[in-house]
Structure formats: structure tokens, C-alpha cells
């Protein structure tokens, strides 16, 4: 399933330079990220892997603009996230970044199609139009018969499909996924990863996936291995580069 690397280097979507992140103060201070240097490219599925507590999710949060780094440079789609206001960052996220969560984070009171259309509504589209567009996307993903089902009526795989549709409905240039397969069985996890691969390939957008599930490593174009807040190696199509 590993895709051949393009001869021409794809466009850089995310640039991290010497990114650090500290939590707490004094003796309780924890250094979660210790000088991360990482590039993420459009058209690639990048995996952030490593043991629990190594800083994968913290790095994903920094890349997604929902957590400010303590130091370093983080540029997403040409925008230095440290140089824009919180308000601009909120708008930036809405327009450019799609989120997929481990526990799907669907709003339980909304139907599948309503959940999927939320980013469009946030973007200012009317409910009617947003539902139409989200419905089309869900149908393309094989969820046409489940549009009006509540999240509680959907299987884990179906819920994750809705979450993926929600992440993609506003056509973002960057999709960040936190353990998207960990709550799913092996087969469903495989289907979800294939869905993510297809989206990454077809839409020329970057997908970043945090995972510790070795079964999905095969889907990554680039695998950044982390340990103790550092990227220890980056593997591209089987070629590993120690850092």
C-alpha cells in the first residue's frame, strides 16, 4: 500500500523548527516537546508514532494551532501561527484544518449529516446548503443510507466515517487525526486508513495521523518516530533517517 515517492518534492504544508512545549512550572515542569524539526508535505500521509507520553498528541495540537508552542517556529500553509492573534487562529483553523478524533467527538444530539455539516455552518453556510453538501460527501463515503441516523445508532466505523466527512467537508488543506483507528477493530481500522489514504492522494492535501497502532504504519508516506519529546527518526518509503 505504500505509495512511491514523487520525484518532485511536494509543497510543504507544515514546517516545525526547534519547537518546544513546556507544561507546568518549577518542579512540576514537564518538557513535552524538545526542539522538534519536522516538515509535512501536501499529498502525503504523515504518521507520528511512538510510545505513550512521547509527545505525539502535543505535537499534533501544536501543528493544528490549538496549542501554542513555548518556543520555536511553526508555519502552517505559509502562516506563522505564533504571529497571528487567537481570533485569527480560530478562523485559520476553521478554514484550513480538518480534525479527526480518537473518540470521534460527534455531537450526540445531531444526526450524521448534521454532524458532518457543522464546519460549513461555522463557516457561515446556511443549514440547508450545508446539509446538502455534507450529505453528498457522506454518500460518496458509503453512508448514504445512514444520513439521518443519530451517532448512538452508528457503529464505530460509521461514526469515524462521519467524523472524516466532517473533517473534509470544508475542503481543508491539512487534516489532523488523533489515533483514528484505536477504537476500531482491525478490519474497520484498515478501511478507515484506506479512506484517509484516498483522501490524501486525491485532494492534494496533507494528512497527519498520530498513532501507536503498528498495523497502520503501512499507510504512511512518512513516519516520524518520537520518543521523550523528540523525533528520533523519519522514515520515508522504507528509508529511515536517524536524527
Amino acid at each position: 500500500m505504500v505509495r512511491m515517492t514523487s520525484v518532485v518534492q511536494a509543497k510543504t504544508v507544515v514546517t516545525c523548527r526547534n519547537v518546544t512545549k513546556e507544561f507546568g512550572q518549577g518542579e512540576a515542569r514537564v518538557l513535552a516537546l524538545r526542539g522538534i524539526d519536522l516538515d509535512i508535505f501536501a499529498g502525503e500521509l504523515t504518521l507520528l508514532v511512538g510510545p505513550s507520553g512521547c509527545g505525539k498528541t502535543t505535537l499534533l495540537s501544536v501543528i493544528a494551532g490549538i496549542l501554542d508552542p513555548t518556543d520555536g517556529e511553526i508555519v502552517v500553509l505559509g502562516t506563522d501561527l505564533r504571529r497571528i492573534s487567537n481570533r485569527q487562529k480560530v478562523q485559520f483553523r476553521g478554514e484550513n484544518i480538518g480534525f479527526i478524533f480518537q473518540q470521534y467527538n460527534l455531537l450526540p444530539a445531531l444526526t450524521a449529516v448534521e454532524n458532518a455539516c457543522v464546519p460549513l455552518v461555522i463557516g457561515g453556510l446556511s443549514k440547508r446548503e450545508a446539509v446538502q453538501r455534507a450529505g453528498r460527501l457522506l454518500s460518496e463515503m458509503g453512508m448514504g443510507s445512514r444520513l439521518h441516523a443519530m451517532p448512538s445508532q452508528l457503529s464505530g466505523g460509521e461514526q469515524q466515517r462521519v467524523a472524516i466527512a466532517r473533517a473534509l467537508v470544508r475542503e481543508p488543506k491539512l487534516v489532523v487525526c488523533d489515533e483514528p483507528t484505536s477504537a476500531l477493530d482491525a478490519h474497520t481500522g484498515q478501511l478507515i486508513m484506506e479512506l484517509l489514504r484516498d483522501i490524501a492522494l486525491q485532494s492534494d492535501r496533507a494528512v497527519v495521523v498520530v498513532t501507536h497502532d503498528a498495523r497502520v504504519f503501512q499507510y504512511g508516506d512518512r513516519i516520524a518516530r518520537m520518543n521523550d519529546g523528540r523525533i528520533v527518526s523519519i522514515e520515508t518509503n522504507g528509508n529511515s533517517r536517524e536524527l
Binding site: 490549538i66 485559520f92 483553523r93 476553521g94 480534525f99
Partner: peptide
């Protein structure tokens, strides 16, 4: 809170 957090992550402002 988690639902509101999700909406915030997806670009919904505090004011809204």
C-alpha cells in the same frame, strides 16, 4: 465541554 472544545477546534469563536 468536550463538544464545545470540538467546535472551538473546528474554528468556532468564543463569541459564537
Amino acid at each position: 465541554l468536550k463538544q464545545f472544545g470540538t467546535l472551538k477546534a473546528m474554528g468556532l469563536s468564543n463569541a459564537r
